[in-house]
Design a protein around this nucleic acid. Structure first.
Lengths: 339, 339
DNA sequence: TTGTACGCGTTATCAG
DNA sequence: CTGATAACGCGTACAA
């Protein structure tokens, strides 16, 4: 293993090789105007020869900016965190800002620990990603760096939180089904204790009401976020309401269960019943039979926005409140117009 | 947003408040013995009052250690990276070492970029996680910090790589099926261009050979890593070899496809046909019908080991070659002894 | 145009 | 036991 090959080449080494002072070397490398072109060239060449890379820690000491941010998550599977992280990485620019990823695993103690470590590392800002889209405790108001809450909003309205538009998503799903000519639409979703479940249902009901319609089956089928519940609920639904022509599932997992039972019952999707999911969890949605139309959470965009808001806050442009970001419909084959 | 509340409280502030010099304050806080107990108490109290947290950047400047490592991945979905990251975080201890997560998205240029940034940040080491378990290009031998390749081995034998035991996994799967009394075992797997597919098949064939058996269906069914292929292959298999009593799938995705078709054909799992997957991709395996017995890759353990090897390397104990880490069987309900 | 000197926050080495 | 003082690597007024 090629460890410790060229150890710690500093600006001094570069300056020495180029025959100039450290100050000049610094200016040359940082593109400062007050340096002769020929000199700059010599310095740059020396730096390349030694494959010099400036010590960001030292730079940070001076500029009071570490060029790092912390991403604090409790999302074990990284299902939400990763897209958000990628979006943030994208917006920051990889050579400007690097991201510390810390997983608190839903443990408040561990979270405190990570927080201390990150502050000690002088991160310029913090993005907190919750495991579920419900309110979570604020990190507090007296932190030395700005904090953005993503996905799960903070319980302190003085914080800035970025959330996905679950109500809008519910509307979007139902709207799409209506456009496909469906009128007997059912909604099977997860744990009613989740704000997201309530919001998605609300959006669906609102849109339906605008058409003077109500839910097939009479009510929202709340249950659990699992395939098994999707299957169970679908069986009950078909029993009670055999003429249903569309099912809006509150998650892609549930939608998979729905599809399974429809398939078992030899009910064709989408010609007889259209199915739409929520989350766009790739491995589930794209591999479904048929591939699943679903509501994409736009998490990368959420990550990008979080990065932008954080940059703004680092420049002093604080803001607060809850900002709701749009979701979007991703059409695959499980929905289609009625012939 | 409570940004910039207490900005940059330094050791000087603490010292001033405690009425001592910075030197003494430093010693007191770092548990150095040569300091009076009463003085130490005063300093500690002052530090708490100001909620002082030492500037790791400055510390790193002196100790020549940043207390950070870079995790360089190309694994978009984070499916492998995340467990590895968590294992590594675990082994490092969150207050000792923080992890920079960088996603190169399979792009060599972006990888170079990230690498430069990480070296500039003076990471103490690097963990490189490949997107697929096949050889990947080495980062090179002349890096100033140790590198561990995880999941995907480096093509340079001088590097240290940690990989999962795919051959052993194949053996394990077949061994389990044999113990369940199955004798007509088929193997449906993914892209033959993947070393992992070849290795898993090899392990399976070897174990079978030890019993004087060969594969049901006569050959390994190579194809793609998708549910659709799992379905297609299973249909062909049942056609050619209707008396099969066990199917070893090369991935959980494929296994899901297998289960789907068996269910369609009203073939009971596990009483008629046992099914075993590979990867233990939670959302697929645990939600399957029935829940899927599978080979767990032990990725957290791999992450922990990577961290340990990296620590050792940072202390000068370099090593090289490919280290193969054991996988383990996770029994659920899709396999059971024949009555 | 270039170099000198100082400081960023911390630790370590010495005197006192 | 405590306190100057010198690093660590770099950026930047200021002087030359």
């Amino acid at each position: 293993m090629g460890a410790a090959a060229n150890r710690a080449v500093t600006l001094r080494d570069v300056a020495r090789l180029a025959g100039v002072s450290v100050a000049t070397a610094s200016k040359a490398l940082n593109g400062q105007p007050q340096v002769r072109a020929e000199t700059r060239a010599r310095v740059v060449k020396a730096a390349e020869q030694l494959s010099f890379s400036p010590n960001t820690l030292a730079q940070g000491l001076i500029t009071q900016r570490s060029g790092t941010v912390g991403l604090l998550t409790s999302d074990l599977e990284g299902r939400f965190s990763i897209p958000i992280l990628m979006g943030a990485e994208d917006a920051f620019g990889s050579d400007q800002t690097s991201v510390f990823l810390c997983d608190a695993r839903g443990d408040a103690i561990r979270e405190k620990h990570h927080l201390r470590a990150l502050l000690s590392r002088r991160v310029d800002g913090l993005i907190v990603v919750g495991a579920r889209p419900d309110t979570r405790p604020s990190l507090g108001r007296d932190l030395p760096v700005p904090v953005i809450y993503a996905y799960a909003p903070s319980d302190d309205p003085a914080d800035l939180s970025l959330v996905t538009d679950n109500i809008g998503g519910g509307r979007l799903a139902v709207d799409h089904l209506l456009r496909c000519g469906r009128r007997r639409i059912a909604h099977i979703t997860g744990d009613p204790g989740y704000g997201a479940a309530q919001d998605r249902a609300r959006g669906a009901l609102d849109r339906l009401a605008e058409e003077g319609l109500s839910l097939a089956g009479g009510e929202v089928w709340f249950g659990m976020w699992s395939e098994a519940w999707g299957r169970g609920a679908t069986r009950m639904l078909l029993d009670r309401c055999p003429d249903v022509d569309a099912i809006f599932a509150g998650s892609d997992e549930i939608a998979r269960g729905v599809l399974d039972v429809l398939h078992e019952e030899r009910i064709d999707v989408p010609s007889q019943v259209a199915v739409i999911g929520f989350d766009n969890w790739q491995v589930l949605a794209a591999n479904a039979r048929p591939p699943l139309t679903t509501v994409d959470l736009n998490l990368e965009q959420l990550g990008r926005t979080a990065a932008q808001r954080l940059s703004a806050a680092m420049d002093g442009a604080l803001s607060s409140g809850v900002e709701t970001l749009p979701v979007r419909l991703l059409t695959r084959e499980s929905t289609a117009p009625l012939r």
